[in-house]
Design a protein around this nucleic acid. Structure first.
Lengths: 339, 339
DNA sequence: GCTTGGCACTCGACGGAACGGAGTGCCAAC
DNA sequence: GTTGGCACTCCGTTCCGTCGAGTGCCAAGC
């Protein structure tokens, strides 16, 4: 079937271009891959592939380069699963097993991902929104100064300082604490926030602390700032771009500073451990038209609490990258499961 | 005095080279600065300056470029204090006053510094070592699972999970908590850790939690990992390097990933708000021979808890950068003072 | 004793011409 | 449908030649 061979040619072009970074010509293609046909035949196939928009030539009489559409087809239909090497597997487990807390897990994941893929890695901190409240603690730092500590099922701890309108006695504190606990523990934060707002002062007077504490607590729960935290690593890998500096590296470096942008790039946490690939101009930012994003949701159980992934040039080793992202996402999920 | 004029020439060379990025010649120099002498005279001065090692020419018959030694002299003796514009002052206060907690202060400082100086900014999180323990809280998450929360005078909160050998009753928990508080609150962490280690189990048996808790707590106190946390921002400014990519940007990007390296670069926190400038090869890393570091200690009161600063090319606007770093360090210190 | 104008010289940057090579498209033959 | 042949197209490189900024030196001037 010519159709099959054309796809084989496309695959070969993608693979060659990814490894050599140079437009690939018909002759080299036949030599490096055992296609069993002559360069002329490949040229015919290439002409068709170009007509269909899967490849282009940078200029007449140069080799061919895959287009976004070409990469898309390659990723969707031509990718053969590339199992990680045992060395890589071992690297993942030794790297991540040493983590001491959530923060550390995220930090290590970023580092690991960037080293495995040799790309810029981005890991979103687990979102608050779907997590539950494990505990609330009120700590009196001074008579009229309270530290509110909120502990979530993901292991994240948020703390806020509250200045009270008046001094607070031991028993008032204990009472407030127990009522708070009753209202919020075990609940998903959205519900917990609602329940907290239901709490009314026991002795409504000017000095009652309830309102102040509840306000701070619900504010901490719905604080979207914490939803948007991400860790970034491996920016040094950008140095490999070398050429195409202004067009590719500069906007990417800028994007890396804007965590909001990064989150949008990573996209919705695809549930169930599926890896999402967004190629070039498919993404929402014009300036990042020559970068691709490979991302996956992660989280304990079946849930996807957050997303992690890498950002790199459209010309990247998709099979290897996808395998690495998937493996890390799974491993991190497992760690969160255990915790 | 010719000596004075020579210094004026050096200053002019530095200023011109910093703003134009090109070797500066005698003629252009006389034109742009009102030196009141002829190019030929300037050439003679330049020859002397070159002989003394303050400037070089990239190649014969090109203009002159300052050497590290030249920048050093410029910074030490020729810098006129350059007050910040009111816009900049306002930017600093509006930017930093909105901070909600320590983490936020650090994040905002990095951002602010990188925007003010248009360089890569680095801010070290306040060190634990000189801070005191404000509070310790033990939270029973489950009968045999304890969350240890350590609150320090800098506002930093460290938390650790402890698995206990056996279940723990209410009163045993309360007793342990109060004994801990007595031992550690108000003390500098080194002393606090020592005091904590003195605590012996009340009822020494296999199930006693004291040992486990104390171990985790002292470990958290002496954890140097937290000493070494830094925030980095403004890497996008590296894009302005453009030329000299491999020689300058790549090693710097790599250094930015290695927080240990960054800390070494920032150097000892110079106390008392003095700004330290390390120029080119004066630094400890060969690969960063063409970058300079401008840093300052900061912290509440007279202490320097940590360091902040910027990293940039040796060819930078030293007066402006020094002013910005100093201003930010002072402002951050003031904020920490108030907290 | 500096300072200055003059002058020959150096060397990189820039631009155009020539060349080689990789790659293509097309066509006729199989 | 495949293949070999062939003319053609450009790109990248190299090789000048020119231009100009800048220098160093020297002799004259203040």
């Amino acid at each position: 079937m010519q159709e099959d061979r054309r796809l084989a040619v496309l695959r070969a072009i993608v693979e060659d271009y990814v490894s050599t970074e140079e437009p690939v010509g018909s002759k080299a293609l036949v030599e490096r891959h055992g296609l069993g046909v002559s360069p002329a035949t490949v040229r015919n196939d290439m002409a068709v592939l170009e007509e269909e928009g899967f490849i282009t030539q940078p200029h007449t009489s140069a080799g061919r380069v895959p287009t976004d559409k070409g990469y898309r087809l390659f990723v969707d239909r031509l990718t053969t699963v590339k199992p990680l090497s045992t060395a890589e597997r071992r690297a993942i487990s030794t790297f991540l097993d040493g983590a001491v807390d959530l923060d550390d897990v995220v930090q290590r994941s970023v580092r690991l991902l960037s080293q495995l893929t040799r790309q810029v890695a981005v890991v979103q901190y687990p979102t608050l929104s779907r997590s539950t409240v494990r505990h609330v603690e009120l700590v009196a730092l001074a008579p009229a100064r309270l530290l509110v500590v909120l502990i979530l099922s993901t292991g994240r701890v948020e703390q806020r300082l509250v200045e009270l309108p008046a001094d607070l006695g031991e028993e008032a504190l204990a009472s407030l604490r127990s009522r708070l606990l009753l209202a919020v523990t075990g609940r998903v934060i959205a519900e917990a926030a609602a329940a907290a707002r239901e709490i009314v002062p026991e002795h409504p007077d000017a000095g009652d602390p309830t309102a102040a504490v509840v306000e701070v607590l619900t504010e901490a729960m719905s604080d979207h700032r914490s939803d948007q935290r991400v860790a970034v690593g491996g920016a040094a890998n950008l140095a490999r771009y070398g050429d195409s500096f202004d067009s590719a590296v500069r906007p990417l470096l800028e994007a890396l500073e804007e965590h909001v942008v990064l989150l949008k790039l990573l996209g919705e946490a695809s549930s169930g451990g599926t890896v999402t690939v967004r190629i070039g101009a498919e993404g929402p930012y014009e300036q990042l038209a020559s970068t691709s994003v490979v991302s996956s949701g992660y989280g304990p159980g079946e849930d996807s609490l957050a997303t992690l992934g890498i950002v790199g040039p459209t010309r990247m080793d998709y099979p290897g990258t996808i395998a690495a992202v998937r493996a890390v996402a799974r491993y991190v999920s497992r760690i969160l499961d255990e915790a």
